[in-house]
């Protein structure tokens, strides 16, 4: 932030110098030297960060990015109204809102989404292809399913709730599950009134409920009822994110921020090297969050978090590694 202000100040000061050059010459000379000296130590590349609005979150991500892209790349915040003026610099958009605004404000800029989910990025890619990429925030469903499998080794059936519009997203994971001794089934929630009846059928089928990042189904308004119904039927819920684990979901894999920042830094470096962002991808490293209180209540002894994550990685590695996700 400090560097960018310095640049702006330099530009404006140069404009003024034409009108009052004689009176301000000594000062201009001094400023010229300050600017030159400053520019000589400044980063040669700039990455802009379109924030989520959560200051602490944005600062945390910016700091992690800065640490990974190196000193010769400036990671600078950018306001929404300045997005349209960006040229030849990538924009890291934090969160779906920032990603959407950045894309709409500037169709030519290269935009790297963070904390965005595959579904959103895919929709944008279809509607307005261009220089967009992302480090996906949602966890691959196969990884989540294997998290459940590690916790409940006997589990063979997995239930997934979906809306008619999201059902197609789960076809891939349904195919993949058979390779891990499981089978999955999607249960369609046609409307909000349909949620609990469909959930009851889903709980009757599956050994556990695999919760995907589907806001139409899993949201603060519905999650309590879903979890209560599931646990009354003695079924656990896996996923969709850390926040839901805090609310009462038994466990969820998640990508730690440093892992996401590292992948984002790799993409930024790739951009500066060859002018394009690599295709969107998931981070390679995941951890597992568990709710110990729920586990105790359901009397499910949980392995150590690291052990769960390690066992999930092992299972994935047996069938081609994380790329198989």
């Amino acid at each position: 932030m400090e560097q960018r202000n310095s640049d702006a100040l330099t530009t404006r000061s140069t404009g003024r110098s034409g009108k009052t050059i004689s009176r301000l010459l000594p000062g201009l000379i001094l400023l010229f030297f300050v600017t030159v000296v400053s520019a000589a130590g400044a980063p040669s590349r700039t990455v802009y960060v379109a924030g989520s609005g959560n200051t602490a979150l944005d600062q945390h991500l910016t700091k992690l990015l800065q640490q990974r892209v190196g000193e010769n790349t400036a990671v600078l915040p950018i306001a929404e109204n300045e997005l349209s003026s960006i040229k030849d610099a990538p924009v890291v958009a934090v969160g779906p809102s920032a990603f959407s605004k950045a894309r709409q404000a500037n169709r030519s800029a290269a935009i790297l989404g963070m904390l965005v989910e595959e579904d959103l990025v895919s929709r944008f890619a279809e509607r307005s292809p261009g220089q967009i990429s992302a480090v996906y925030y949602n966890v691959p469903l196969l990884r989540q399913a294997l998290t459940g499998k590690v916790i409940l080794p006997h589990a063979t059936k997995v239930s997934i709730l979906a809306t008619p519009t999201s059902a197609g997203l789960y076809e891939a994971v349904l195919d993949q599950l058979s390779g891990y001794g499981m089978q999955g089934r999607v249960f369609l929630v046609e409307s909000s009134d349909d949620l609990i009846p469909t959930l009851i059928r889903a709980l009757g089928y599956g050994d556990f409920l695999l919760a995907a990042s589907d806001d139409a189904i899993y949201n603060p308004r519905t999650i309590k009822h879903i979890l209560l119904t599931a646990y009354r039927r003695n079924r656990i819920v896996i996923g969709p994110s850390q926040a839901y684990v805090k609310a009462g979901s038994l466990a969820s894999s998640y990508a730690p921020f440093p892992a996401m920042a590292s992948l984002a830094a790799d993409y930024i470096n790739a951009y500066f090297n060859d002018g394009t962002l690599p295709p969107p991808a998931y981070p390679e490293q995941y951890r597992v969050e568990v709710n110990d209180q729920v586990a105790r209540s359901l009397n499910i002894p949980l392995p150590d978090r690291e052990e769960i994550a390690g066992l999930v990685n092992e299972k994935l590695a047996e069938t081609g590694g994380p790329d198989n996700e």
Binding site: T55, L57, H60, Y137, K224, L228, S241, K246, A247, G248
Partner: peptide, 24 residues
Amino acid sequence: ATVLPVAGYAQSDSPDFSADLLAL
């Protein structure tokens, strides 16, 4: 629900969640 202090930059995409959302 785990009653954990949520750091300002905690990984949460649902800020509406309260720590004791689930009573069971």
